[in-house]
Design a binder for these strands. Structure first.
Lengths: 259, 259
DNA sequence: GCGTAAACGTAAACGCTGTAAACTGAAGTG
DNA sequence: CACTTCAGTTTACAGCGTTTACGTTTACGC
């Protein structure tokens, strides 16, 4: 309400800095393998635990805050990596971004767990709303839209969709930058849901460890899943190039920490 | 070592009963929405918490025990449901079992989380070994094998597999009743991994709530994913029948608690 | 049949967790 | 300057997993 153009006051800046520190410290704890706990965060910040309640209303809210920021930061990473490819190559960018997503999930499984394997069932709609803002979700939808503009993804007509699904692509609850997609083209969101489900599926399987470690390390499962989605995304002609790109990216993960 | 044919002694029976009670109480707690905690389990059993340490070495072991038993019980449910179809219809049985799996995951998300969304990274190989025994994994592999015997699933030759994957299907670490599958046919296990990854993916997405609730309720995402796998499983000819079966099963879930 | 040892269970305690209430001191505002 | 808002502390509570030390019951070998 008050923050419209008026520059942030000193207090506001300080408060924002504290939020940043909360996220930074939480991330550090997570990466050290320690449990993410209110008290540990407070202690490392030189505060007592109850003081943190000036910033988050509960432990769950701390988790949500950290999850949201980690998602944002990770997405920025992937985007930076994908942006090495030219702007008019959204298919290449999606390929790179997907590999980065997987790389991130495997390298920082605790972060991944916090952001993506966090049951959202609990406590009504607060978390839902936050989920809808998911940065990574927006990024992937956006790439898919660009691919569609360039290649023309074959997508179902609204009439071919299950009525419930139709309703849900016309007024999406899941993270999707969809306002700019004309209603008639919203069938695209169905493709988005389906491909996201596939990507999320393999990566979750791999990241949570329910997978033969050797297969995981080879990346074959992930590779096969991605390749299966090239045709449905209208990228048949780009297949050889994209697969080569995919393999090049995957090779990085198998390289002995190559310098 | 000692338990070979000799009938269980009184103590052994009592101990087994206690284990059963631990699982029962844990399951009850879980279904009530309470946290699964050592102390709560002990209290409800009329014991003090440390007493439980006579049965499990740690909290994690309690979780593993419950997870294993829940998996076993759930698989028995699915099998019972699938066994309504004749023995010579493994494809139908797989369809029903998959729907049951999803139904279970959505109806008891906490059980699902415990069994399938439980990070296995921690603490070395103990949990890996337990995972390899997964009852549900064996059941699905078995169905796939029966489908192969009847329809002939197109599977890759060993030589076409990534060397790492080849090694891993020849000596599987993941749950798979594979001893009876001849080495030359082990490419099947690759199909198993891939299809399991797809099934696990949608169901996890749906069960953890990272999905539009309306789409979830309609079952469309799950339906589409399953249908996509009919062709790769060599079930093209059975498609109409299996889709009808699938829809009939899914209709049950949407029915208003039908009688 | 009795002694012994293993198995089962309790009580007390430690350090950790999230959270609530009351209170203190400083920063910013009229 | 008076006054409010904000940030932080102290204290406290209930619950967690886990360890240690101590009893009690049960089964088994001599």
């Amino acid at each position: 309400m008050s923050a419209l153009n008026t520059p942030p006051t000193r207090r506001e800046r300080q408060r924002a800095a504290t939020y940043d520190e909360i996220v930074a410290v939480s991330t550090a704890l997570l990466d050290e393998g320690a449990e993410l706990s209110l008290r540990a965060v407070a202690a490392r910040m030189g505060m007592t635990a109850p003081a943190l309640y000036r910033y988050v209303a509960s432990y769950q809210e701390l988790v949500d805050l950290v999850a949201f920021e980690l998602d944002k930061a990770a997405t920025a990473e992937w985007r930076a990596e994908a942006d090495r490819l030219p702007e008019d190559d959204p298919a290449g960018r999606l390929t790179v971004a997907a590999v980065c997503f997987r790389r991130w999930a495997l390298a920082k499984p605790r972060r991944f767990g916090l952001v993506f394997a966090n049951p959202v069932t609990s406590s009504g709609s607060e978390r839902r709303e936050l989920l809808t803002l998911s940065t990574s979700g927006h990024y992937f939808t956006d790439l898919l839209w660009q691919i569609h503009e360039k290649y023309g993804i074959p997508y179902p007509a609204l009439d071919d969709l299950d009525p419930v699904v139709r309703e849900s692509v016309l007024d999406p609850l899941i993270p999707a930058k969809a306002e700019h997609i004309p209603a008639a083209d919203r069938g695209l969101l169905w493709i988005y849901m389906r491909s996201w489900s596939a990507l999320y599926g393999v990566v979750t399987l791999e990241s949570t460890g329910h997978c033969d470690p050797r297969v995981l390390q080879s990346g074959a499962l992930f590779r096969a899943t991605l390749i299966d989605w090239l045709d449905p995304l209208g990228l048949a002609e780009e297949k050889p190039r994209l697969i080569a790109l995919l393999d090049a990216e995957l090779a990085k993960d198998r390289a002995p920490a190559g310098r």
